[in-house]
Design a protein around this nucleic acid. Sequence first.
DNA 1: CCAAAAGTGTTTAGACTACACCCATGG
DNA 2: CCATGGGTGTAGTCTAAACACTTTTGG
Lengths: 224, 224
Amino acid sequence: MKSKIKLTVDAVVFGYDSGNISVLLVKRKYEPFKDGWALPGGFVLENEDLEQAVQRELSEETGARINYLEQLYTFGDLGRDPRGRVVSVAYFGLVKPNAFKLTASTDAKKAEWFDIKKLPKLAFDHKKILKIAIERLQGKITYEPIGFELLDKKFPFSDLEKLYTTLLDREIDRRNFKKKITSLKVLDELDEKVSIGRGRPASLFSFNKKRYFQLKKEGIIFEI
Amino acid sequence: MKSKIKLTVDAVVFGYDSGNISVLLVKRKYEPFKDGWALPGGFVLENEDLEQAVQRELSEETGARINYLEQLYTFGDLGRDPRGRVVSVAYFGLVKPNAFKLTASTDAKKAEWFDIKKLPKLAFDHKKILKIAIERLQGKITYEPIGFELLDKKFPFSDLEKLYTTLLDREIDRRNFKKKITSLKVLDELDEKVSIGRGRPASLFSFNKKRYFQLKKEGIIFEI
DNA sequence: CCAAAAGTGTTTAGACTACACCCATGG
DNA sequence: CCATGGGTGTAGTCTAAACACTTTTGG
């Protein structure tokens, strides 16, 4: 006998753009929760592993292709889905929102970014999933420089600072913050500057991934 | 159509006894991997949530009842189980090994504690699961005092110290360690002493759970 | 009285915090 | 020339790390 338990994956994908953290949601095309907003996701196929399933669903429903994706948690409570017993493996992703264009298709009427402070009502237990994802994001950013996944290849230092103040929801001393990041040597300063409207032009930095993975291997941690 | 993907749970339960960390394994009664050693676990029933499933399997296969149990990771690679597509939600547990007697029954020929440095060959991808669990254990113990879950209600301070040296696999300065633990005020010193053979008798301590949960709520972290 | 384990303080170095003014550009 | 955002240094405090001897018991 085959199991009646069904398996889905859901993705909580965060983006960051000039002072706002947003999450990728889709409008459902079908019942249950037709026309409701939900996390992108869907049933896992028999011949794909979990991460492939998430990537496929994300690409089908939103057009997104995500580099940073990790498993978040598996939700298996009874009654979390009106269609019966559905267990969902949730993933956590980070992306630069302007890295691709949103294009809904299968299962989704449309895909949109929502500021995490202005969320619509969500289908299923997705509010709970999102809450756990936000906690993970805030926790993680204090000990791993995943913030870089949310920024462009080249960015002024102030972008990084603003990202952290937004994510942690508190002020950061610019000098101390720079000292700490600099001491890690994970940033390369480029010979380039940008000026955004008025004000002194800012040097651009890029993230040195090689150095970061080396640090991680050595077990060195990062703490804001 | 019902899904052909089946869902199991597996438990990695750690115990600690006088300088040794051990993990609870069962000898399989049936194919596949008949007579092989594996993590306790099995199929999730339709009317139970994931944690109930783990507790039920643990109790059926080993007689254990675990207080500290958290979700570890979900393993869903293709081909991880010869019976077809099986996705497993792994849990991570801590227990005092002498808290109960091992009694195998359903699905298991016998249950036994194995020193994590002297493991037998394991069925399925359980070696990989166990590896991840050990990393979690080592990581976790440095920022949450979960070590207390592994000790008796009353214990001499040296037990705690030995647990940490074993778990982290390095020497700890006794004075600094005591200072740190003491500053957290999570230990109550009792008016009792034990002497174990020769040497000066040791005061007994107990873990103040109330204080610990309060600290956790306040977001205070612990770091060895 | 000797061996074994418990218990206890101080000093030093490094890390974290707080804090304010000058610089380069665009309008 | 002024408004805007970028960039920089230092002193004080706190925390972490290094380090060795005394105490109490059993044999």
